[in-house]
Design a protein around this nucleic acid. Structure first.
Lengths: 355, 355
DNA sequence: CAGGTTCGTGTAATCGATTCCACAAGGAGG
DNA sequence: CCTCCTTGTGGAATCGATTACACGAACCTG
């Protein structure tokens, strides 16, 4: 592969001049510039980003460590992150933690070794020493979706409290009184916050949230299945199951179906994180939708601000309730036909109905 | 951030010795080794991968350019690729082409600039000069899923011909005679091959595949919706729509629902690429399943073979038909309950029923 | 027209590693 | 006791870029 020396030789100039042309430094004569450009073209030269990074101490790369690639929520997040980063001249390297702290650590370490300019993390746990040290040492870092309390790192996330209240109001209005939740790991903020929000919302209606109605999941489908089975085995099973993420909702759907029961007739279901597929499940699933693409964009802008010396800001956006049929028919005259929400995976084309 | 010089100073040895310890070169005294290790620990030193790559001319990184991150098929592929790569000591950098040749080109260029050791591509089109040049220039490269004919690059893919024959047999057995297909872009192999396989299978049953029953899609949901609407507007609409990928099937489902029609009563639906969600759609969708995790692993092994000087092999695995309810009840006494297939996104735990 | 800018260019240092080569010390063998 | 090896170590070149600095030529300006 041709190097800058080859180009210099071909163009009959020094490497300094070639470099100047490439970085369009002003003081290069038109003649030299033309010769260099011709040489670049002739040799098919492309600057070696590795060498450049070593010298300039910047890689123009962002690391993104997400909790689970198979979760459409994170996939959508990754997509918007890459999009915004590209617009700002950065590349993104994605690390998939699969909800495993050890894998998360592996990826953080690898990314740090590669000297990425900034790090976006959706932490799977309370944070390893490695990550906390990096934060303290001044690595530009931003938490997305989930965060670690007590660490001085900006957070970009959606606040679901009001949407959870809307959900509970909706459920209460449909006559449900025994509501259960499949929680995420307590070590994650989204794991504990969603339970808290749910409990608070129930309290407003004078409803209890007994321990038996709090199932411990891990944001993966299998745990949703297991917890739902436990709920169904209860002497007094809940009337509604609220899954703290979409994969556990999928698992819940599995479990219900495996028993030969029907949603919402035998048991109602709702989920945190809306995804395109929820429109097409049987029945369509009522969910709390996050402004995922906006979160991704805001997160990128925050790290890049930090990288480029501007003060980064934490961002909190609102989540909204999307009512579908999985909790029962809404009150009022039921229409003959379900409201149709066009699905497309492109953010510029996505529409969502709010209650 | 501490460099190798700092470690050398701290340990009272030369940088050469530090390097030797780090790469466990045999000729280092136990004493020196201990002092270096202690210094590494004390300083929290981590070798700079950028500098190392510059010197050794290898990044231990693989590039993966996929057609669409929002497509669960590619997400699953990416996951297995990263897993296998990690097991072999490589990192993976994913580029999402979003089915856009220009974006694909952007990512290939960026990855090449970063001097990745090998490239895995699922081409969105016939291949840009950039990519073809790279292949010719000897960049270790492997095509996954889709490929570009006439280029000397190993291909790792699934052969769907026999599964498509099984599908057509199934449809024919259910009494369907007017079968239509939503094709992918003709520029992609999976776009054209699936149509060919379908046409051949139909021929075996003496069924025609009129041009009106070949809709041109682009592997995205919106095109599935559009093509399905066109089918439904035909004087004689098809009885079955076969979508060449899962997103277009989703679009088809949208379109059918928007007309107030039912699957499979009014029109049957089948898809290429099985995904967990198809179990839970209304109705569950009959699909052709690829051995996606195996494809990912085989692809990684192929590039790594190439990188490490072993001859890489092309791999073709078989796809299988998974019958569900979207084409009508299978003949014979219909069971009261759907067969239950547990869903989990983890490959080690996935089960699939074959007809 | 002398002195000061400005402009274009090249030389060489530098980033943080790896690795070739030289060399010193010590042990083995004659 | 003098070679010859082996072993452990350090100096310095190198990878491919960027960039500070020096320098010569041309151009003003008073």
């Amino acid at each position: 592969m041709a190097s800058i020396k080859d180009v210099a030789a071909e163009a009959g100039v020094s490497v300094a001049t070639v470099s100047r042309v490439l970085n369009d430094h002003p003081s290069v004569s038109a003649d030299a510039r033309a010769r260099v450009l011709a040489a670049v073209d002739a040799l098919g030269y492309r600057p070696n980003a590795v060498a450049r990074s070593l010298r300039t101490d910047q890689t123009r790369t962002l690391g993104l460590v997400i909790s689970d690639v198979l979760n459409p929520y994170f996939t959508e997040l990754a997509r918007s992150v890459e999009e915004e980063a590209r617009a700002l001249g950065y590349s993104v390297v994605i690390g998939n933690a699969d909800e495993r702290p050890d894998l998360q650590d592996h990826h953080v370490r690898t990314l740090l070794d590669r000297r990425i300019d900034g790090l976006l993390v959706s932490p799977t746990d309370g944070g390893s020493p490695l990550m906390l040290d990096a934060a303290r040492a001044g690595t530009p870092m931003v938490f997305v979706d989930r965060w670690i309390p007590g660490v001085d790192v900006p957070v970009v996330r959606a606040d679901g409290r009001s949407a959870v209240r809307d959900l509970v109001a909706h459920l209460h209005g449909l006559g449900h009184r025994r509501l259960a939740i499949i929680a995420g790991p307590a070590a994650t903020t989204t794991g504990s916050e969603r339970v808290e929000a749910f409990r608070d919302a129930l309290r407003a209606y004078g409803l209890p949230l007994p321990d038996a109605y709090i199932g411990q999941g891990d944001f993966q489908a299998a745990s949703g299945r297991r917890v739902t089975e436990e709920f169904l085995d209860l002497a007094e099973p809940p009337e509604v199951v609220f899954a703290a993420d979409n994969l556990m909702a999928l698992g819940a759907l599995d479990a219900v179906r495996a028993r030969g029961l029907r949603v919402p007739d035998d048991i109602a279901l709702a989920a945190f994180d809306d995804i395109p597929w929820f429109v097409h499940t049987d029945p369509p699933v009522t969910a709390i939708a996050q402004p995922t693409p906006e979160l991704g964009r805001a997160a990128v802008r925050a790290v890049v601000d930090r990288i480029e010396g501007r003060p980064p800001r934490s961002v909190t956006l609102a989540a909204t309730l999307v009512v579908r049929r999985s909790c029962g028919e809404p009150p009022g005259p039921p229409g003959p036909q379900d409201p149709y929400t066009p699905h497309t995976p492109h953010p510029d084309d996505t529409q969502r109905s709010t209650p």
